[in-house]
Amino acid sequence: MTAAKAILNDTTRCTGCEKCVSACKRENGLAKDLPRRWKLRIDDLSSTRFTTIQRREDGRPVRRMCLHCLEPACVSACIVGALQKRPDGPVIYDGDRCMGCRYCMMACPFGIPRYEWEQPVPYVRKCILCYHRLDQGKLPACVEACPEKATIFGDRDQLLAEAERRIRDQPARYRNTVFGRDEVGGTSVLYVSDLDLGFLSWKPDLEAQALPDLTWAALGKVPTIVLTMGGLMTGAWWLIGRRNKLAAEAAAAKEQETAAPAVKPKTGEKS
């Protein structure tokens, strides 16, 4: 198996030229961005834009894309396994399996998956880390297109080391953290930046716990519940049925003593 790959984004190097965006569009055959009701900004992530340059207040460009979590919430949420995490990094999507429930979009802590709302037959769209290019030994289109080397591709371990080296070398230029190292269990897209990158997720300061674990804490109890509930109900039915039967028999016996016709109770049977 190939080693886990990753992308490292250095926001201090990004000039916002959007070459990554057009490369991505070309590579994935995405259509023109049109103003739509469901887009706050036309350059927001959308079904026609897998990566974008998000500009902070002071105009600082930050590239936004799927972070390809190591333990992706979307993959664990997907009911049909249309979303899969490949060992080498990309979180990929299979439209043939997708049933369009959009639970992945609810689950993603970064708000990445987008939907083709304009289509009668819509699919989920998101960055797939150009896995088809990876398979051919090529770089992801955006990485290849970046004229500034603000986004680079490589083994995750090496990139982490590179990120730490940069932070060490130029402490004034960077914040002392690699975004994506631990967040929600780690991601395959890493950032070094002088900015606080909390805006990339729904809430700043993500914890290190992987989200699928939260679900599994409850989901793991299912067998217990089945057995407990089933047992309880069967037991209750048997006990109560028996008690009613005994009571009825006693009553019948009593009634027989008084020479009245006995009526057999019918419990547990549908009328």
């Binding site: 949420a77 997907c78 009911i79 049909v80 396994g81 249309a82």
Partner: peptide
Amino acid sequence: NPVAHPQHHSVL
């Protein structure tokens, strides 16, 4: 599809 392609880690 959930029958054909079950993904039992999903609550859904």
